[in-house]
Write a protein that binds this DNA or RNA. Structure first.
Length: 285
DNA sequence: TTCCAGTTTCCTGATT
DNA sequence: TAATCAGGAAACTGGA
């Protein structure tokens, strides 16, 4: 099954990135993860957004998308090696990617090539084989089974993101739930909990471009700097484009009862890890 | 099939 | 006035 050749490029205009370091992400609409397909990256990063014009921030955004998409642990990539803008990123060779990101490098390199291809030839399906062929230096892909283009079984969790069906927006299937505009796929493990997601942002400053910050590291007190942006990220992770801070905060408040979070009275956007939250203390790392 | 945990959504009212 | 907080209620999903 050659998915990439059947994938019609459909790029929502809202996915285009036309600003540098957005002060508010509330207007930044993440694409439906349910559209994740082998050409996922080229949809996500619209063809209008040519990687060579990315800011450093957008490079990091792309990296984060790659991590999420391939279920790669953030710790496996030294983000400081990607403190580059789009122009510098595009000038990186296959070897540069391998040096910078190790075994993940080939995946990133391949993804970037797809983006470059699509920005140059919008509407023309990317042929990863062409890239492999054009890579004279033996392309020693360490993930033969993880070639996202080769099959649809790259990763069970990734597969779970592929839509079971492709109902039209107006079809009844999409209206299964009035209050649930997204579909969580079967066999998709519950995965990260919200509080763990928040914790991981706090523990990975490289992945946290000013979204949440520690107020008191030892006490586990933290504050949302860009609440809507965090909600958007959480929504993206859960394939829920309608996530808002209001909804996210409701989920956060449920943690009070379970003592995963504690109330911090009188301070907006401030939360504190509770006794049942694990893994946030420096001594636990 | 049922139950449950963990959200998600919607809502009203209070507070900043 | 808008943003945020608080919490009730119902709905939904995946897993056991």
């Amino acid at each position: 099954m050659v998915l990439h050749s059947t994938c019609i490029m459909s790029i929502p205009s809202t996915a285009s990135i036309d600003s540098q370091l957005p002060t508010s992400w509330s207007s930044y609409t993440f694409p439906e993860i349910s559209t994740v397909m082998p050409s996922y990256t080229s949809r996500l990063w619209s063809q209008d957004s040519q990687p060579q014009y990315w800011s450093k921030y957008q490079v990091w955004e792309w990296l984060q998308q790659m991590l999420d998409m391939h279920q790669i642990d953030a710790a496996s990539i030294p983000f400081q090696n990607f403190d580059v803008d789009g122009r510098q990123l595009c000038s990186m060779t296959f070897q540069d990617f391998t040096r910078a990101a190790g075994s993940v490098g080939p995946i990133l390199h391949q993804s970037l090539n797809e983006l470059k291809w699509n920005s140059q030839f919008p509407g023309v399906d990317f042929s990863p084989l062409d890239v492999i062929k054009s890579e004279p230096d033996d392309f020693p892909c360490p993930f033969p089974e993880s070639n996202i283009y080769a099959t649809d079984i790259y990763d069970p969790s990734f597969q779970s993101l592929v839509p079971v069906a492709s109902p039209t927006p107006s079809s009844p299937d999409t209206k299964r739930s009035h209050s649930r505009p997204y579909q969580v796929k079967k066999h998709n493990p519950r995965g990260t909990h919200l509080w763990e997601f928040i914790r991981d942002i706090l523990l990975n400053p490289e992945r946290n471009p000013g979204l949440i910050k520690w107020e008191d590291r030892t006490e586990g007190v933290f504050r949302f700097l860009k609440s809507e942006a965090v909600a958007q990220l959480w929504g993206k992770k859960k394939n829920n484009s309608s996530m808002t801070y209001e909804k996210l905060s409701r989920a956060m408040r449920y943690y009070y009862k379970r003592e995963i979070l504690e109330r911090v009275d009188g301070r907006r956007l401030v939360y504190k890890f509770g006794r049942n939250a694990r893994g946030w203390r420096e001594s636990e790392k």
